[in-house]
Write a protein that binds this DNA or RNA. Structure first.
Length: 474
RNA sequence: CGAGGAGUAGCGCAGUUUGGUAGCGCGCUUGGUUCGGGACCAAGAGGUCGUGGGUUCAAAUCCCGUCUCCUCGACCA
């Protein structure tokens, strides 16, 4: 069968990955563009994925003792300027409200690009004693960053995310929480998005504006580029000092708290699309797929067919499976292609032949493999969904690992990233070398590699102080 | 922000060079036949040509401005 014989509507994933991505997110109705530059509408099929991400992550946060809250979207401009590095990092991309109620405002209001400042301000009011700590809150909200170039899910002017913010009595505790949340994210990516990530600390150049240390998780996209899928930040006392987050300690002395923050966004949807997608379109991980199973009736006007599909749907729903029954007037072939493009993990074909034989034809989206199951065997379908998730993770992991290559020279590094790889390389620790790699290979340091040791700096050849993963990044 | 491309029916496009009745395919609606990998027949509906201004008897078409999107680069928690 010729490649893409049935896929006439989307670009070839190998030849034009950026166009493939844009085609897929629009044609599967995950998103549409909003009328204002860089804004997107997340349509029901896309929003359902976000809701599954939210509920899964939210449960994990709550299990760790984090509480949800909501802080205002508008932040006084003066807050932003209280932390020197923070304002320098964010000032170029904030949107500012200067007029309201028909009059010019006394003080301009920033539309939050992130909420460290306003949450720092509020935490400063609430924290008085060591007994008030730790204070651990999270909010699900939108933020705005006026980016110059945008792409649905990956970088938009407004996006949805969660941002967690904690204050601890000691730096050790806050830093431990920073690592714990990073591990929480990585586990979530594995179990829920079936997506492997590299985790680790980021360089000074790549860290959050105002942080002491930033940790990130990086996922490998289909084209070998890296996507920062989530970050956690240890702030030390930087924000506590800027916003007066002070408490009286056990020893009676007044002292500043230690803060940290962590966030993931709707970018995760872009990440899973670019990790798992193929020539036919989306391949959704079962845990977040709006529908885990689509039932396609064959010869649906023949007696007994639709009735049988309803019985099957009920049996699956009783087992806790999310099911779509496509009883529209489109032909079966049209439906096969449509739901494959939309990435539904499992398709079940049910026609007169199957009903007669007490069977159903089950097709996996990830491998396109078709198998006969006993009719209405929901337990077997559940087991298959679970296996699909594990297989998707295993394939993505094997792929990522096979595309991590070492480099000892800039030329090797360039060849590595041009070949769509993550490159492991030594680094002397000098910012000038990091900058030179960027210029020479259009690749940036993603995270520190704590598992391997390269001996010499890939750029200057001096003794390496660290080993880094370099990649081209979205 | 720089370079390139695009905006005409829900989607994909032609028409713009050379100004003169708004077109095609798919989709949509209705009726019928179909249904195991993008079915078929018949009859219909659907447009201030992104937007503002200008030139002209006359603008989708020519001129100026502006908005949005796509690709690449620069920038980017």
């Amino acid at each position: 069968m010729a490649k893409n014989e049935f896929v006439k509507d989307i670009a070839d994933i190998e030849e034009d990955f950026p166009q493939w991505y844009t085609d897929v997110v629009l044609k599967t109705k995950l998103v549409d563009y909003g009328p204002v530059k860089g804004t997107m509408v997340i349509r029901p099929y896309g929003y359902a994925i976000w809701e599954h991400i939210q509920s899964e992550l939210d449960g994990r946060f709550k299990a760790m003792g984090v509480e949800n809250a909501y802080f205002p979207m508008l932040i006084p401009m003066s807050f932003l300027t209280k932390e020197a590095e923070h304002v320098e990092g964010f000032a170029p991309e904030v949107a500012v409200v200067t007029h309201a109620g028909g009059a010019k405002l006394e003080e301009p209001l920033v539309v939050r690009p992130t909420s460290e400042t306003i949450i720092g301000h509020m935490f400063g009011k609430w924290v008085e004693s060591w007994r008030d700590l730790p204070l651990r809150e999270n909010q699900w909200c939108n933020v705005m960053r006026w980016e110059k170039t945008t792409r649905p899910f990956l970088r938009t002017s407004e996006f949805l995310w969660q941002e967690g913010h904690s204050v601890y009595e000691t730096g050790e505790e806050a830093e431990a929480e920073t690592l714990k949340m990073l591990a929480c994210y990585a586990d979530f990516c594995k179990e829920v998005l079936c997506m492997p990530v590299l985790t680790g600390r980021k360089t000074e150049k790549e860290k959050f504006a105002g942080a002491v240390a930033t940790y990130g998780m990086e996922a490998m996209m289909h084209d070998g580029k890296s996507l920062q899928a989530g970050t956690t930040h240890y702030m030390g006392q930087n924000f506590a000092k800027a916003f007066g987050v002070q408490f009286t300690g056990k020893d009676g002395a007044l002292q500043y708290g230690y803060t940290m923050s962590y966030g993931v966004s709707t970018r995760l949807i872009g990440a899973l699309i670019m990790t798992h997608g193929d020539a036919r379109g989306l391949v959704l991980p079962p845990p977040v797929a709006p529908f885990e199973v689509v039932i396609v009736p064959i010869a649906q006007k023949k007696e007994g067919v639709l009735e049988a599909t309803h019985v099957l749907k009920q049996a699956l729903e009783n087992a806790g499976v999310r099911v779509k029954l496509d009883d529209s007037d489109n032909s079966p072939g049209w439906k096969f292609n449509e739901w494959e493009m939309k990435g539904v993990p499992v398709r079940i074909e049910l026609g007169p032949r199957d009903i007669e034989g007490g069977k159903m034809l089950v097709c996996r989206r990830d491998t396109l493999e078709k198998t006969e199951f006993a009719l209405n065997d929901a337990a077997a379908v559940k087991e298959l969904l679970s296996r699909i998730g594990k297989d998707m993770y295993a394939r993505a992991k094997a792929r990522m690992e096979s595309r991590i290559v070492p480099a000892e020279t800039l030329d090797e590094l360039l060849a590595g990233v041009e070949g769509g790889n993550f490159v492991r390389a030594g680094w002397c620790g000098d910012r000038a070398c990091e900058d030179k790699v960027k210029t020479f290979a259009q690749a940036t340091a993603r995270v520190f590699d704590e598992t391997h040791t390269m001996s010499a700096c890939v750029c200057c050849g001096k003794k390496a102080a660290h080993t880094l993963f370099f990649a081209r990044a979205y």
